[in-house]
Amino acid sequence: MSAKVGYRKERLDRGIKARTDDIFAISTYREILYLILPRVFVIAGLLIFPLLGDFTGVYWQNVIVITCTIALLALSWDLLHSVGLVSLGQAVFFGVGAYITGFLAQQFGLPPLVTIPLATVFGALVCTMLLYPVLRLRGVYFGLITFALPLLFMRIIETTKVLGGTEGMSGLPALPSIAISLYIIITITLVCVFGFQRLFETDYGLVLKAIKDNDRSVIAAGFNISWFKAQAVFIAALPATFAGAFLTHHYQFVGIPAFATDYSILPLASAIVGGPGSFFGAMLGAFLLVPLSELLRDLGTLRIVIYSVILLIFVVGLPEGLYPYLRRKYFQFERVVSMELEEGGK
């Protein structure tokens, strides 16, 4: 047999990964730093950003507010995806949160401190009840229902002229200052990322994850999966309804655009580009895509073309997602090794 020589990539875990994954032993400060530095970097960066107001300008501060909004929606999408529910209509959570806030603020004159938490929790409840009947649907079928819901709400508001109709509700109370707004939404985003990650490390989170892999076996382990999925939808709805409620007060306005398809597609794109299943990926994706779209704004109509091409490059070139890719690079060596190919081998 004539042996041809081929090359392949070999991946080796760095020592730090083997030690922290399997035997949970960290020996030196260097290793501890190696593990926590990326997190510290992200947290510190986000917390310092609002202080740089003079340097960054209000425009970019607003961009970060939107970015965090999309990040929250992407986190919500990622949580649903982790339970096996593919949502194509994150806008429904966003819109419900936004309209409840607007309604509470306009009808009862409640301050943001009251309306935002109320709209977050109550909106999540409403969305859970809306989706409860379709939770047994999977994949595309569930996706289609969620895609239709925001459009349905839009048309209902448009035709019945309730809640301000096409005019929407304006002149709602504002948040005290842009710096405070930034701190609120950045903190909530960070809490959600780390909170969701922690949640999925618990036994409870394991059950949620297992539902995606094989729901029948989860039933055979004695769990009522409809009830668990409903809980997951509620938890996932919280950041999204919060985002809607928050942005309503940020803009001092709520209208039909709250159900816009942007709020469904951008979070989805963020989570896919960032890498679904890790939560951090969803956030990273949002922090990449939203500012990128702003940077391209000067290009006029071409913007969408270039934006789409960049999206394509990411999806085709990095199908696993940006975060898993970076994580792998951080924790593994990669080297090219030669190997003998058998006849007929590739």
């Binding site: 059950v207 297992a210 892999d213 094989n214 029948r216 382990a221 004695g222």
Partner: peptide, 25 residues
């Protein structure tokens, strides 16, 4: 199940955490 399917993305021993976490156990 005849067509036994584990929870693919979860470590083997954690597959058992799920039934061990069940209301009955």
């Amino acid at each position: 199940f005849q067509m036994a399917k584990p929870f693919y993305n979860i470590p083997v021993y954690k597959n058992l955490i799920i039934p061990l976490f069940s209301p009955r156990v």
